[in-house]
Amino acid sequence: MTTLVSLWDFSLLLCSVALIGVAGLLLARVITEGSARRREEMRRKLLPAMIRGETPDVGNSKLARSVAATLTLELAELVRGTDREALVTAATATGAAEELARRLRSRTAQDRLVAAEALAMFPDYAPAVTKVALADPSPDVRLGAALALAQEGRAPPAGELVRKLGIGTSENSLLMVSLMRDLVKTDPQAVEALLYDLDLPDAAKLAATDALAESGAVDHAPLVAWMAEAAGEDSDLQPRIFRALGRLGHPAGHDAILTGLDSASWQVRASASEAAGRSALKAAVPRLAELLDDDEWWVRFRAGEALARLGSAGRLALHRAAIDPAPTARAAAKATLAERGLA
């Protein structure tokens, strides 16, 4: 019986605590609504001045620094070039940079991330971002800081960054391709060197490959050679490698693409078909026509799409397949032609 009564008492206690808690939060809301008005007034004073890159006369109060830091976060992404430089000067003068540097050590990961992203734009504070944010306990903050630094051309060397972030091991985000792309802009050779680093995981190398393939900064021949070799390995990354080979369209990758069309994995056959179409690989037409009868729809779709891209030879193959006795290939060819108005 005591237990039952205790249960009732305990539920009443929890209920009361929760109601007191919500009442406290309501009170806090009312109080903060007052400080929100003061922040709004400060914002109205700071905003036009910071947009013009002027140093506003608002003193160096905590409120001014905090509002200036928040405004810097909002405005920095919207301006470029000399406007950005003027904003950085104004933000430094109002103490915003100092405030953001303080937020790099905030207890909230969200605050640390946005502070690191904004602070990377301040040349004087880039070392602080490198030191603090790249060693942050949150992987999201580390990656965000690395991306921001790389975008500004202030990131540490590619090899160091890859190891620090655990790219390809603990860090699997697709954003590593964006990171590599920005690193390529400042030091393409360092990114290319990653391909020949035996200790690096394939995922990191693939991100480097994707970035290098998009840039004209390095000679593509060794890159394609690496990709062709990697394409022959049995790995989950194969479809991405074939797509990259297709984007590059380098003749040195053609043999690998032709081999990919015979792969046992339908994902590889589909991506190799896509690559064949993109790289204008006319030698692939007969095999692509056969793939219109593949068991997997994605392969048939990509093969049809590739044939439609491959000029008259591809279209002829599609028309032939449209009267093929095999119903699957016939349907795929007919639908592909009809969709493109080629029927």
């Binding site: 976060l73 909002e74 992404e77 919207l78 909230t108 990961a109 969200q110 640390r112 991330l113 946005v114 992203e117 949150s138 999201d140 903050v141 965000g144 991306l147 954003l175 964006s178």
Partner: peptide, 12 residues
């Protein structure tokens, strides 16, 4: 996980 804000979210 922290999320980039506004324009940064889009760019990133």
């Amino acid at each position: 996980p922290p999320v980039p804000r506004g324009a940064t979210l889009w760019r990133r």
